[in-house]
Design a binder for these strands. Structure first.
Length: 791
DNA sequence: GCCTGATTTCTACCA
DNA sequence: ACTGGTAGAAATCAGGCG
């Protein structure tokens, strides 16, 4: 019989050296199924030295056959490696778990250059070779079998063929369960060895909401009923926020301590840590939306409530946020405990809302790059690109390079023009559409087309990058050219379809998620080639791409100037010119003709203000919105007071063009600030710990604040954001930084906020109009009657 | 020992 | 663990001064 299924999760098991691929899916009738495939052999390659005879190498291995009892097949194959034809031996092995050991021995055999693809996990190997993609439909011949294992599915099948892709767009009806929990300790970070799980709030996409609450400190029933609930609802997807790093590890330790089996999966195993720091729940997809928070650079402090607020899931102003430090107080007080329960329930509602907003994107990304839905979030951008490339490489017979450690050497990147400081009117922004990807396409820049200086010029000729003189085969099309053209085509096909659809329709959401996923991968592919951790790292590829980029932008500026278009600014792939539609049209056509690259007439600023600094400006759009770039307003490491003031100043300057009014506003704001009318939270400064605390060479305010928190028992590590305020007192700034949760308004050094936050942020803009920092301070003398009347 | 300017460290941004 | 280019604050260093 045949089964059509949508791929949810995959894992592998080895029993008596015999592997099984376990494919968890949903069939057309909505039945949850497990398909077991015992027919796929693990393998890796031995790359043969150029002058060696593969046959001879094979014989050498044969003589030592008894060392490799599970080696089942040796076969010579013709492949490509970085575009060059190579000879290799495909070594097939009965037990995938022995591949590491075998490859370590075989790589030393005479005539072997190196081992390749021995580091591809068996289950991924299965997906790649059979072109099985997660979050997609497939068809497979099967035979139903007994559910001997007692897994929680509607049917278990043995695969009788390898799966084949089936074209179907819509995903099946998935069961989604979201949860969040509340734990606390009298001091610092709660510890699962000591502190109970006070509350677990659960919600499902069937509309249920449940809370499991501890009786005093007895949380065994909490865990038990949570587990029971999960098993009864039987979700396909488990969603949470921060679950990979916090909730799951906590629940694991806690359940072990209480003697509870944390069987929330479909096969009676416990969640376990897997690749990329992800927690795997067998048969289900465990997604931590914290891993997707990076996709929202606008959200500076990536808490659940901030992400939910940003996505419009649950507005912050409608909530009462309870800080971790206050959990215990709320729990202990009979009047306040309901508020904590409400807070926890809302957290889970936020999780569900974020899942609703993000799941389509996560599924599309998983489908595009081919990584299972549960790892794709935890994989960093570089690995997402890499897995996408691995899949594509397989299709064209390219061997996957090994990961190697290499030293870091920087190379020259893009050009940034010196802005013309001041306010300019009617400025058009012209951008190159996907500049780096398109340069790679037009010049055939790719890891497999690079011709090193020692190599002779290939017959088809080469493209030579300016300045750096790296050469790339002009013909035939390289790996990158194929891959990137495909990605750009896919996106270009989606764009017109989106225009015809209602943004609320299911189809729109899926297509929009798809084009976003494609964009992410396209944009990261240049950077990937210059990343020393990349399998396909070739520095000249990255270096040549930026060199062509510089040449392109410089030539475009030349052309503009010749046509009488004044260029006031430019960065990497954009130029800012006086808006002159006819001349712009001419330039665009000329550039398209000459460089084969497309210029987008991106936007027009009614007015734009440049500071003397690069990468920091503010433009007024025709609809009245401000486009604020690089300035304090858009930075996460300035207090809200400074950002609010600067934003208002920009508004007054660009919309009303009244510097004096802006100065008055700043002075008034400062007096208000000194009167303590500004909310405490607007004084918090957030900074990230970018390395382990002991690695810091200097004493910085946020590091000192972090140390204070750690002394109070809080666990902090790399990547955590530290919120602190500056308190009054003598000494260096770092001595005056105090975690905001431990400080009170009365301690705050408001003069610091005046002189080091508000004034510099406002002066950055107003200095252009001859205003000094002193001029921004409220005058000590009382207002004259005239000044009073003017306000 | 104190002041000042130069240099280093650190973070977060832009494309 | 995608890249390089950039600004700006604060800490720290180095040298001059008396």
């Amino acid at each position: 019989m045949k089964k059509t299924f949508w791929l949810l999760d995959v894992n592998h098991e080895v029993k008596d050296h015999r592997p099984e691929v376990w494919i968890w899916g949903i069939d057309e009738e909505g039945k949850r199924i497990l398909i077991i495939d015992r027919n796929f052999l693990a393998y890796f390659y031995l790359l043969i030295k150029e002058k060696e005879n593969p046959q001879a190498v094979m014989e050498r291995i044969q003589t030592r056959k008894e060392d490799f009892p599970f080696l089942v097949k040796l076969k010579t194959v013709e492949k490509r490696f970085f575009g060059r034809p190579v000879k290799a031996i495909k070594v097939s092995c009965q037990d995938p778990d022995l591949i590491g050991r075998y490859s370590n021995v075989l790589r030393k055999v005479e005539g072997v250059e190196k081992c390749l693809e021995d580091d591809i996990r068996y289950s991924m190997r299965y997906l790649i070779d059979n072109d099985v993609t997660p979050c997609d439909w497939h068809e497979v011949k099967v035979e139903e079998t007994e559910n001997e294992l007692g897994v929680q599915v509607d049917g278990v099948y043995l695969a009788k063929s390898f799966p084949q892709g089936v074209r179907r767009t819509e995903a099946p009806q998935l069961r989604i369960l979201g949860f969040s929990m509340i734990c606390f300790s009298p001091k610092g970070t709660p510890k699962p060895e000591k502190n109970p799980v006070a509350i677990i709030s659960v919600a499902t996409n069937a509309g249920d909401e449940v809370q499991f609450v501890a009786e005093d400190s007895d949380d065994k029933p909490v865990l038990e009923s949570f587990i029971k609930y999960v098993r009864r609802f039987d979700p396909d997807i488990l969603v949470g926020y921060g679950t990979n790093r916090q909730d799951w590890p906590y629940l694991l330790v806690r359940s072990r301590k209480l003697g509870v089996d944390l069987y929330v999966d479909r096969a009676k195993t416990e969640p376990h840590r897997s690749v990329f720091g992800h927690v795997s729940v067998m048969g289900r997809v465990n997604i931590d939306f914290f891993d997707f928070a990076e996709d929202f650079p606008e959200v500076k402090v990536k808490t659940l409530e901030n992400v939910a607020d940003f996505l419009g899931v649950m507005k912050l102003e409608k909530r009462k946020i309870i800080e971790d430090v206050d959990f215990l107080t709320y729990w202990q007080s009979p009047e306040k405990r309901p508020l904590l329960l409400k807070f926890s329930k809302e957290n889970t509602q936020c999780v569900m809302g974020i899942a609703d907003a993000m799941l389509d994107f996560a599924m599309q990304l998983s489908n595009l790059v081919g990584l299972p839905l549960d790892y794709v979030g935890t994989a960093a951008v570089g690995f997402r690109v890499e897995w996408f490339l691995i899949r594509r490489a397989y299709k064209i017979g390219e061997l996957i390079p090994e990961r190697v450690e290499r030293p870091y050497f920087p190379y020259v990147g893009a050009i940034v023009l010196e802005p013309k400081p001041g306010v300019h009117e009617d400025i058009a922004v012209l951008d190159f559409k996907a500049m780096y990807p398109n340069i790679m396409i037009t010049q055939n820049v790719s890891p497999d087309t690079y011709v090193s200086p020692t190599e002779p010029e290939p017959p088809g000729g080469v493209n030579v990058a300016p300045e750096v003189n790296h050469r790339f085969r002009a013909e035939p099309p390289g790996f990158y050219k194929k891959v990137l053209s495909h990605l750009i085509d896919v996106r270009d096909e989606i764009t017109p379809k989106l225009e015809k659809l209602s943004p609320k329709s299911a189809e729109y959401r899926v297509l929009d998620a798809r084009q976003k996923a494609v964009k992410v991968i396209t944009n990261a592919s240049y950077g990937y080639t210059g990343w020393i951790g990349a399998r396909w790292y070739i520095k000249p590829v990255a270096e040549a791409t930026t060199a062509w980029g510089r040449q392109t932008i410089l030539n475009t500026i030349e052309l503009s100037k010749k046509s009488g278009l004044e260029v006031v600014y430019g960065d990497t792939d954009s130029i800012f010119v006086k808006d002159d539609p006819e001349k712009i049209k001419k330039i665009s056509e000329e550039v398209g003709r000459k460089f084969g690259l497309e210029i987008k007439h991106d936007k027009i600023y009614v007015r734009v203000l440049f500071t003397e600094a690069k990468k920091r400006y503010c433009g007024l759009l025709p609809d009245g919105r401000l486009d604020i770039v690089g300035l304090e307003v858009v930075r996460g490491d300035w207090a809200e007071v400074a950002k609010k003031v600067q934003e208002r100043v920009l508004e007054i300057i660009l919309k009303e063009q009244k510097p004096e009014k802006a100065v008055k506003f700043v002075r008034q704001y400062i007096s208000d600030l000194r009167q303590k009318t500004v909310p405490y939270r607007n004084l918090i400064i957030w900074k990230t710990l970018t390395k382990p605390i002991e690695k810091y060479a200097v004493r910085a305010p946020h590091v000192e604040a972090a140390r204070t928190l750690m002394k109070e028992g809080w666990d902090l590590s790399m990547g955590d954001k530290i919120g602190y305020v500056i308190v009054a007192g003598p000494g260096r700034l770092y001595e005056k930084a105090k975690p905001y949760v431990l400080a009170s308004y009365d301690e705050v050094d408001l003069e610091y906020y005046v002189s080091n936050q508000v004034v510099p942020a406002a002066a950055r803009i107003l200095a252009m109009f001859g205003v000094t920092k002193e001029g921004l301070l409220p005058s000590k003398t009382p207002k004259t009657l005239l000044e009073f009347m003017e306000d």
